[in-house]
Design a protein around this nucleic acid. Structure first.
Lengths: 129, 129
DNA sequence: CATAGACTCTATAGTTGCTATAGGGTCAAG
DNA sequence: CTTGACCCTATAGCAACTATAGAGTCTATG
């Protein structure tokens, strides 16, 4: 199958597929006589793996690591565990930050009603520290 | 005060201050004979305003809008209210997404103990869709 | 006065993960 | 042959910084 079809099936854009190939996340596929990329079922599976990892906010560099490990079945999977734990920490941290942010924004929202001028705006006063 | 001092007092890096000036968030300050930027108390206040907005994840383009409004005290502050409401929505949305992500990662974390090989790794099996 | 080190300047490139665009080639159907 | 859909590579752009290169300024010290 050609890249457009792969894009359709995977839900990943053509440019992104090419980008992933360039970044080493996907293997360069075989080519047609016209130099079109030709993908098989294995390539689709690999792309879906990458895409799944991305949906977990795992950075590309770490996805590459996972892909390498995937090709070494006899190796210890402790680094996979570490990677997921790290990702979980980052997510927890970000949730915490966003909750603080949310509180601030909620307070600010209450500091002003719609019928003010800028100089009387409670939000603006808060922003001015 | 020169830029290094402003950076120290504000907690904002020298490069970021220059970047904000370049992007139009801060006014170009006066210069010394040696062409060094010279900042006064007003400039510090303006930088702190920008920095506070950034801490709320407000994009620079919107901060510029807020700064413009700040210079128009007689204008209605409804757009300020809208901006904060929008920001709150974005934050709420992102929190929601991260919670889904967290759940997935927690499930994955439980799918594997440390003493496996890659081929037996529950996490890897999950990633493989 | 000379020197050295701290500070400052502008310009440019890089980071991450895409996304868009330009200019040109391939392919199949009419 | 023409046309339109698809494909190719290269490059630039996005957001918000951040780093680096090469050069100038300034102050304290010998």
């Amino acid at each position: 199958m050609k890249i457009g079809q792969l894009a359709k099936v995977s839900g990943c854009s053509i440019q992104t597929i090419r980008y992933y190939e360039k970044e080493g996340l996907l293997n360069p596929p075989s080519r047609s006589e016209g130099n079109f990329r030709l993908y098989d079922e294995k390539a689709l599976k690999e792309l879906e793996f990458v895409k799944h990892c991305r949906s977990l906010d795992i950075p590309l560099i770490d996805i590459k690591t996972l892909l390498e490990l995937k090709n070494r079945p006899e190796e210890s999977c402790s680094s996979i565990n570490d990677l997921i734990a790290k990702q979980l920490d980052l997510v927890n941290q970000r949730i915490k930050e966003l909750k603080v942010l949310k509180s601030e924004l909620q307070i600010m929202k209450k500091a002003c009603s719609s019928d003010n001028t800028v100089e009387r705006c409670g939000i603006m006063k808060t922003l001015e520290v």
